[in-house]
Write a protein that binds this DNA or RNA. Structure first.
Lengths: 108, 108
DNA sequence: GATTAACATCGTAATATTGCGATATATCTT
DNA sequence: AAGATATATCGCAATATTACGATGTTAATC
């Protein structure tokens, strides 16, 4: 006991939760916001921006990449990261669905 | 080491990540979807619906409540839960922001 | 007032996450 | 080729999360 019982839930429920989970850390929000703010793609000036070590930042980037929230392309000896709008859109649609179906009898 | 360095990030970044984090578990997605599907508010028929014990479900409900994703109102000796559209909307706006600012030079 | 039903909380075990230094790897630069 | 730069990965320690049985608590019911 202690492990998430993923197999007991649907594939869709697991997929959704994995994207949300990847967004569920302030460092990863900061990374996304930094990619947004620098109008071009970044490599690891993140190391100068975030209060974390290079190893830790690399780990967070990997989690974002595994959740398909960012993409990275090799650019010489550095890596250029940018947002994957598709994933962000689809998770936005999930939230839209949560919100839109709220035309029912309220209770609280 | 090991603990999230929350204090190193902005209040806003922490707030956003806490909502996403609360959505980052399949059981909590399932709870939200169940509240959506039963057109009226539910109590703990969740115990009959989810593959988890009453204690575990109660814990997940508390996390959703603490993140302001659901609200519960006492209804006799049971509790009536429903979605908190405000929180869901505001986090949807965060995603909108992530997506909309994507009118910049793509890199990948 | 005892019983039942619906939750919440405590304590605990198993597992996952976070963070970092050290080290590896790959690609530029000289 | 040697050194510098950028990134990834390993191994570990600290902490957090997940899950559940047992036990509380509160309110309806008998």
């Amino acid at each position: 006991m202690g492990i998430t019982k993923s197999t007991e839930f649907t594939t869709e429920q697991n997929k959704k939760s994995l994207v949300f989970k990847a967004l569920g850390h302030p460092a990863r929000i900061a990374i996304i916001e930094h990619i947004l703010s620098v109008n071009t793609c970044i490599c690891n000036d993140l190391v100068g921006v975030l209060p974390l070590s290079q190893a830790t930042i690399s780990q967070h980037l990997r989690e974002l990449k595994e959740a398909n929230i960012i993409k990275g392309s090799i650019e010489g000896n550095s890596i250029c990261y940018c947002l994957n709008i598709e994933t962000l859109s689809s998770i936005r649609n999930v939230l839209d669905h949560f919100i839109s179906n709220s035309d029912r009898i309220p209770c609280c």
